[in-house]
């Protein structure tokens, strides 16, 4: 098809000619059908996983924070019931502090009266 058609003017043929021209100008892309389908199905699966993760992630985070808080609370409760004095030193050094080897002078039995 070339422009020579337009050099001689046929108005009655114009409309079908233009319609045919449009039809002929249609692009017919060549597609690898299998790859196209495979890509869509793969992307669809990825999308489903992503969406479910986005949907459930606040619940998962909330549940983990709550469980950690619960554990901490339980540990605090159990440790407070049989609380032991804190010992920084151990062994001989601890004994020395509790029972000094050098006897301390005994103080007055009766309180001093000023």
């Amino acid at each position: 098809m070339n422009f020579s058609f337009r050099k001689r003017h046929y108005p009655e043929l114009e409309e079908p000619f233009l319609d045919g021209l449009l039809k002929e100008s249609r692009i017919e892309p060549i597609v690898n059908e299998e790859k196209f389908n495979r890509d869509i199905l793969r992307l669809n699966r990825v999308g489903i996983v992503k969406r479910s993760f986005v949907y459930w992630s606040p619940a998962i985070v909330g549940a983990s924070v709550a469980s950690m808080a619960l554990l901490a609370l339980l540990q605090m409760l159990t440790s407070s019931s049989n609380m032991k004095p804190i010992r920084i030193l151990n062994g001989d050094a601890a004994q020395r502090i509790e029972r000094p080897s050098v006897p301390l002078p005994e103080g007055p039995q009766t309180p001093l009266i000023r």
């Binding site: 249609r26 692009i27 017919e28 892309p29 597609v31 059908e33 389908n37 199905l41």
Partner: peptide
């Protein structure tokens, strides 16, 4: 899903291409 893609693929790609 595959059937639906097969049914509409060619026309959809052509529409987009044009």
């Amino acid at each position: 899903l595959t059937v639906l893609i097969d049914r509409h693929r060619a026309r959809l790609i052509r529409v987009a291409a044009n």
